[in-house]
């Protein structure tokens, strides 16, 4: 990262930075928060906004892909016409996928319960 040079008053200009990262200092960021790279919302992870997460039940799923169609965030990943996984880095846990699922194959599980399970697994190991 370039150190701040007080003699270069024209910081942030022409820095068509590819990705803006939260660890960048004020003089390294683009001026006024302008974004020069299309589709860069992908690099901004919003998954930690989530308090409940969708969990897929493989046995019940009939791969109708209602969840994929209704997801407001493109966080349902499908492959070859079948449900594949959730994108937990961007899913905000709105629960629409669970609501529209005709066979109740998606459970909304509180994140703290997920944490508890993770902790328990750690202890076993």
């Amino acid at each position: 990262m370039t150190p701040y040079n007080p003699f270069n008053r024209n910081f942030g200009s022409g820095t068509r930075t590819k990705a803006v990262r939260p660890d960048m200092k004020w003089h390294e960021l683009t001026r006024a928060g302008n974004i020069y790279e299309p589709g860069n919302a992908n690099t901004y992870e919003t998954g930690d906004w989530r308090s409940i997460r969708p969990v897929w039940n493989k046995e019940r799923c009939i791969h109708c892909l209602f969840c994929w169609r209704y997801c407001p965030d493109a966080s349902v990943i499908a492959k070859d016409g079948k449900f594949e996984t959730f994108d937990y880095k961007h899913c905000k846990g709105c629960g629409i996928c669970a609501k529209v699922c005709p066979v109740n194959a998606i459970d909304m599980v509180p994140e703290d319960e997920i944490e508890k399970v993770k902790e328990a697994n750690k202890d076993e190991n």
């Binding site: 939260p22 200092k25 004020w26 006024a32 928060g33 302008n34 974004i35 020069y36």
Partner: peptide, 14 residues
């Protein structure tokens, strides 16, 4: 893209 949503992790810097 101008006038973007600027959260707590960028607003202060701008």
């Amino acid at each position: 893209s101008m006038g973007n949503f600027d959260m707590y992790d960028f607003y202060f810097e701008h």
